[in-house]
Design a protein around this nucleic acid. Structure first.
Lengths: 342, 342
DNA sequence: ACGTAAAATGTAATCGGTTGCAGAAAACAG
DNA sequence: CTGTTTTCTGCAACCGATTACATTTTACGT
């Protein structure tokens, strides 16, 4: 047990608690070199480590960031968390993790309280924006006392956001299919109450419109991100519109389902049907055929979120203004076999 | 800011701080019902929430568990973490997350200090056992003052372990290939400095020996869990031993690489070559052909670890003995297309 | 050598709870 | 109505750090 306290150190080093504290704080140069040495030696000798609780009790800072997440069993969120932890670690923060299992609801009161009572210095809200599950933002009763950075959420005034530019990525993916010579391009979207899903779909729509390609009723199927829903989606599209020769599938899991159905329905990919996914999951290159997809760097999203948050915290302490902004990262297209037709 | 303190509540409720504290503690029944009501009303009115720091400073308990993990970008570890968080949340704990990026090294001193100075009530060590990266356990200088539960580590006396029974799973997988009529069964292992990898391989070896099937030099290739290494592994096996008609690939990512190489080398799966993987990643059913695999419930591993840890903590507080044990969960075989030959 | 400013260190209050001990109130017995 | 338990509540010390303010020590100029 860390039974040694600052008082023990003080006694051994023959100085006062205050002096020890100053040595620990570091920046205060009002310490004689010789004294500092004595204190450090005592610390070393005792194997002393400061009590985090005492420190944050007095100073109101905990060097802890709360992160509220969802869907850790999926690739993207895991990477985000990993990136966030890495950056936090480098900046001297530790993460307090809370996972939500029902992202649609917005029952956040106790959650915020919990985080607050633990004196987190800031909060990362990594729950996708679904329906109006961010409505609590409007309720003044829920205004958290610490800065919050939102991930993958719709940019709005007075809100820090770090997200991938899903709209641009949707444009890129669809334009790629166009460039490959597809004439009838469908889309299998994520659940449309997700902001991200709507953005990707919008990219698809605008890409088609901008070149005057058809966008018939029935060129769209709504999935739920699962492989099964990708199967169902492609089946719907192809039965209603056999002329479809390209599909933008809005995540890789649905895409792998689509690939399977394409095989089973006798469509050659990419010759008869070009497919591009979204996410670039680890094994996308090993799907059959290798999946073209939009690569999004979720690790970077996590890192940026923490970096942004730490800046807000710092600014807040110095009473410097730091206006909320939205940071949009660009996804990159990765062309593999499933969409390459020339 | 949570500016309201227990003193504010006391003032409003016209009682002393001590009384408020007792109401908060709950179990103390030495409070008149009427008084309790007043206090609760005051708490409600003020929107009071206790300060975590103050509480753990005095009581030395933080209701926080530290979890040290590795490889969150992979499926298994993510699920473990998710399960751990879920159980922790149910038991009233919050997780403090720390990720390691170089699991081979065992530079754990500052890490343990950090966790300790934050008064975590217990620790979950979810870093795979690689080489002697658990050697710090032997060093008395590193004995953490809080209980530790190890995940996916070799069971040893005086050590709490929760893990999947990789050996039994290796047996099962290999016996399945035997039952499907394979005569020459190879293995693509994980890196053999990993304990888990060795266990799986051992299962393969013993399964073959127990039925007297050949196990030639060159029936084994060592991978590094990556899809690329699965490709390389299968290529090695098949060039040295074209007669191989079944392979136990020790994780699904390597298996997906193997599937690809099998295709490219013109081996039909499963007719010419039966393949079984390990992990049951989300899309295993959508590989081509659908991948047979050993399903391990990593979520449950996470849950169990936390449950075990909480029991140890409780026992420690009551001064009840609670002997270290190893909890081995069994993996379940999932037979899909890649290994079904009859 | 002495006065004064600057540097170094100490004293003590404070953060927001918990808890041992003691005193007050209520319950109960005779 | 008093004496004794039992139940309830308050006082005050304490957990381990930080920090404003006071005090001592050192440096420096003349």
């Amino acid at each position: 047990m860390s039974a040694t306290t600052i008082a023990d150190v003080a006694r051994i080093a023959k100085v006062s608690k205050a002096t020890v504290s100053r040595v620990l704080a570091g920046q205060s140069q009002y310490i004689r070199a010789e004294t500092r040495q004595r204190v450090l030696a005592a610390i070393e000798e005792l194997g002393y480590h400061p009590s985090h609780a005492a420190r944050s009790l007095k100073s109101k800072r905990s060097c802890t960031l709360g992160i509220v997440g969802y869907g850790l069993e999926f690739y993207g969120p895991s990477c985000t968390l990993s990136g966030a932890e890495e950056e936090a670690s480098e900046l001297g923060y530790t993460l307090l993790l809370h996972l939500i299992r029902q992202p649609e609801t917005n029952n956040v009161a106790e959650l915020l309280d919990e985080m607050q009572s633990r004196y987190v210095d800031g909060l990362i809200w990594a729950v996708p924006e679904i329906g109006n599950n961010h409505a609590w933002l409007e309720d003044p009763a829920f205004q958290p006392s610490v800065p919050v950075v939102f991930l993958s959420a719709e940019p709005r005034p007075n809100r820090f956001v770090v997200a991938v530019d899903n709209y641009a990525a949707g444009l890129t993916a669809t334009r790629h299919l166009i460039a490959e010579g597809c004439q009838n391009i469908g889309v299998i979207t994520g659940p449309l109450d997700w902001w991200e899903a709507r953005q990707r779909k919008l990219g698809w729509k605008d890409a088609l419109e901008s070149v005057g390609l058809p966008r018939k009723e029935g060129f769209m199927a709504e999935g739920n991100w699962s492989a099964t829903s990708g199967e169902r989606g492609l089946m719907q599209l192809l039965t209603k519109h056999p002329e479809i020769d390209g599909v933008f599938v809005c995540n890789d899991r649905m895409a792998v389902g689509a690939l399977k159905i394409a095989r089973e329905m006798g469509r050659r990919v990419p010759e008869d049907l070009a497919i591009i996914g979204f996410d670039d999951v680890q094994d996308a290159a090993y799907f059959y055929p290798a999946l073209s997809t939009m690569h999004q760097d979720m690790i970077e999203v996590g890192r940026r979120a923490v970096r942004e948050l730490s800046k807000v915290i710092e600014a807040q302490q110095n009473n410097t203004p730091y206006p909320p902004t939205a940071l949009l990262l660009q996804a990159e297209i990765v062309v593999r076999e499933s969409s390459r037709r020339r």
